[in-house]
Design a protein around this nucleic acid. Structure first.
Lengths: 274, 274
DNA sequence: ATGGCGCCTTGATCCAGGTCAGTGCGACGA
DNA sequence: TCGTCGCACTGACCTGGATCAAGGCGCCAT
């Protein structure tokens, strides 16, 4: 065939979404695994232990005054109910935010209404950095469960970064890290590699924040995982099933247990790098 | 079937590469279109007109002294022959560089020797930003043709950025922009969309630097384009052929002419965004 | 308890693009 | 002028994962 009208069918028409109606609030808690990921040990006087910025500054031996200044410009927000937009594509960019509790999904919706999930952000991670360039958020950020945030005015934190080398370095690092993440997602990988990498990456990030690494709750529906990994939801189901049949994981609905972390890691290696 | 040994065949085994032998130097010049893209109007006393940094600083009304300081830390390098590694994955990160002339390809090579092209960098564009996070370059940078660079010591430019808000802002922006680029590459797009977007994007970037937008020379082989777009080289050939049959472009070897920029742009729109 | 509603899963089928196998063709050296 | 070498192109065929079409199965409201 190879007619001149080949291809160009809209990709993933199934991922069409309507304007968010705010539903989908989770209330049940799975026995033994908290449904909402919370790491909220900060308050008006102390940083959360996982805060990307406090680490940066403390490790650089910043003086107390500077640290206080950083802390002063933090604005605690939340809890934000599941399904709520934290920001929308096109909104004017004025602040970045650290997730303090819960999970935030960032996504882009193209003209045809097809949603592309860009990332899932756990406690301690930063959202909004990709908006710096254009001065507007290029994507939506949506709470997947009740979310708590620390807002940082970007002009203010950038100004403070001029006096705090550690903070400036941290900002550069965070931005640079996000480039690496997006480049890994852009790689050419099989469904198996993508799913294994997704599970291993989640597990490592949870572990880094002090959560259980081998048994956790997925806070997002299969459709979001599929969109994030550029797969069909059916493929996600099938691969998870196969990984389970192979004894590498146990999945039941949204609960996951990694049973062969080494095997998964070797599957994921091409994608995550060494 | 769906046996447990499904999938996981190495992807794109054809893209296996050997350690670069430095060959492939281009010498012939296509009539009417320069083969090597050069925009080298800077010297020891003036910035190149396309330099990302000089723009940032001038537009912010930086004082002459600060501008001179930035200029002082620039180190002009080159010409670097085609095929030469500018840096290698794993090298210690100490500097970023602005392309002054020629084209630089960045790529990752996985354990199996499969090369993944991450980007092509034209005059005025910056390479090395993704290395900030880990302190080592995560990818290779290779000259596709004779290349001239401006090196900037990263510690020094970061230090200077503390006193030059415009420079700091520019660095944040450049990093943020690269996130956006990588996210677009990671999207789920058809071969047609990818190729159209590649051509349109190249054309726009060339135009932004003062080169002809509708007729230009591809400085990279089809295999590199394919790897960059996550396609097989054969698919690149076929799609280019079809676009030509449809009257949207004219291609002959590495020379390209965009004949229906609007049509291409609409094909590319889902990928490049509005 | 029971019916409805989302999500998830499973099976059957399809197709865009990858893979394989040659065939041009321009550049360069002898 | 001819040979050779590497990239580019083309056709035939294959396959991973998408799509289509039903079911399950929690979870909630009545």
């Amino acid at each position: 065939m190879s007619t001149s009208t080949t291809g160009l069918r809209r990709r993933r028409p199934g991922c069409r979404i309507e304007p968010c109606d705010g539903r989908g609030v989770s209330s049940a808690v799975f026995p033994s695994v908290a449904r909402t990921i919370v790491r909220d040990d900060g308050d008006a006087y102390r940083f959360c232990s996982t805060c990307a910025f406090s680490q940066a500054c403390l490790s650089e031996g910043m003086d107390k005054g500077a640290l206080r200044e950083l802390h002063v410009l933090v604005e605690h927000v939340g809890p934000i109910p599941a399904g709520t937009h934290i920001f929308r594509a096109g909104d004017r960019f004025d602040a970045i935010a650290a997730v303090r509790g819960g999970t935030v999904k960032t996504s882009r919706v193209d003209r045809e209404g097809c949603e592309q999930v860009l990332g899932f952000h756990l406690p301690g991670e930063i959202i909004g950095l990709s908006a710096i360039d254009r001065g507007r958020y290029p994507c939506n950020a949506i709470a997947l469960d009740p979310v708590q945030l620390c807002h940082f005015s970007f002009p203010k934190i950038a100004l403070l970064a001029r006096r705090m080398p550690g903070l400036q370095k941290k900002l550069f690092s965070l931005l640079s890290r996000d480039i690496g993440h997006a480049e890994r997602m852009a790689g050419d990988h099989s469904a198996d590699e993508r799913i294994a990498a997704f599970l291993v990456d989640l597990s490592q990030r949870l572990a880094a924040r002090g959560f259980a690494a081998s048994r956790f709750q997925l806070t997002m529906p299969r459709t979001d995982i599929a969109s994030y990994l550029r797969l069909a939801p059916e493929t996600v189901s099938r691969v998870l099933r196969r990984l389970q049949d192979e004894g590498r994981i146990a999945v039941r609905r949204r609960e996951v247990e990694l049973k062969d972390a080494a095997g998964l890691a070797s599957l994921a290696e091409r994608m995550l790098g060494t």
